[in-house]
Simulated assay, not measured.
Amino acid sequence: MSALDARPRKRDNHARPRKRDNRAAVAFLLPWFGGLALITAGPVAASFVLGFTDYNLIQPPRFNGLTNVHRMLSDERLHHAFGVTVVYVVVSVPLQLAAALGLAMLLDRGLRGMAFYRSVFYLPSLLGGSVAIAVLWRQIFGAQGLLNQVLGVAGVPDRSWIADPDTALSTLIVLNVWTFGAPMVIFLAGLRQIPVMYYEAAAVDGASRWAQFRAITMPLLSPIIFFNLVLQVIHAFQAFTQAFVVSGGSGGPSDSTLFYTLYLYQRGFNNFDMGYASALAWLLLLIIATFTAVNFWAARHWVFYDD
């Protein structure tokens, strides 16, 4: 044995504290991992399995293969709910983002008390998805609601906006546009990152406000617009509370407010067809993933980054 091997080896004094730190980290993370397994991962896996079964919440699930998939192809009410949801997403999301960007540009001009206005405008995003606001919305657009009282001054006859199939969905679109606070705050942060010298140089060259907005604001803000677009599209596809409360859970009148999520709820908890509802939930995941992928593909043509 050589002299080097005969020498006593030094202890790694840092190994023991490192192991204690690792054990402490694992101990603190265990509740989170437990919640992930029991509350998220477990139900997700169970819903995937139930999507291939006939399950009514009372009797044990029975495997039925691709029967639920075949039912989706011939389910006309599902197709109608998907169409209503797509109209809601395609109309409400651009209007919401336009309102959010417009107000963000107003607040970016350095108004006094901007912190107060920012908080006030953000408030609808906190309350818009609540049951209380949905109930309030039903009162505003009802036959004796606030809107009819205002229009009555101009001689417009009363009508129940939420009871008319032609206008019921429009009231929910207005509600979603009203919850512009979250994207507005993000837009405001993005506007603050655009250097003022770009606008000053454009003004010296004689560019109008519209030309500055089109050539400077929109290209430099396009990553923020894309970020808000993806988030709000996902959020709009998952809309449920507003349609459930305003229509009383029926999706009426004449299924004009029958969102995809509301139809899924009806199949699972009204008809106790939980196997089919689970399959519908996974189909919704694929639909949202498809729309998100299309947004990422289209972003290559209109989103500009610094590099």
Rank of each mutant, 00 (worst) to 15 (best):
V156Y: 06
A15G: 09
D166G: 13
A243L: 02
Q139H: 15
L146A: 13
N22H: 13
I216M: 01
D108P: 12
F187N: 02
N56L: 07
L146R: 11
L262I: 06
T85H: 02
I58Q: 11
A99I: 12
V294H: 12
D12E: 09
A6E: 08
S160D: 10
N295W: 00
L146D: 04
L151C: 10
F272R: 12
N148M: 03
G152M: 03
L172M: 10
L103T: 13
N270Q: 14
V44K: 07
F48H: 03
W32F: 11
A182W: 08
G251M: 05
I162C: 05
D5Y: 15
V131L: 02
F116G: 08
Q242K: 11
V246H: 00
F304M: 14
N270E: 11
A298C: 12
D5Q: 14
I225S: 01
D21K: 15
F244R: 14
L103D: 01
L258I: 04
A25W: 13
Y198H: 15
G248V: 04
R77W: 04
A98N: 06
T290H: 07
W302H: 03
L107P: 04
G142R: 05
A25L: 14
L73N: 09
V87E: 07
R118A: 09
W297Q: 10
V177W: 04
G142S: 07
L123Y: 08
P17D: 00
Q242A: 13
G181E: 00
R192M: 05
A134R: 05
A163Q: 08
F259M: 12
V153N: 05
I234L: 04
D54Y: 08
D166Q: 14
R159M: 09
A215G: 12
V26P: 11
D306R: 15
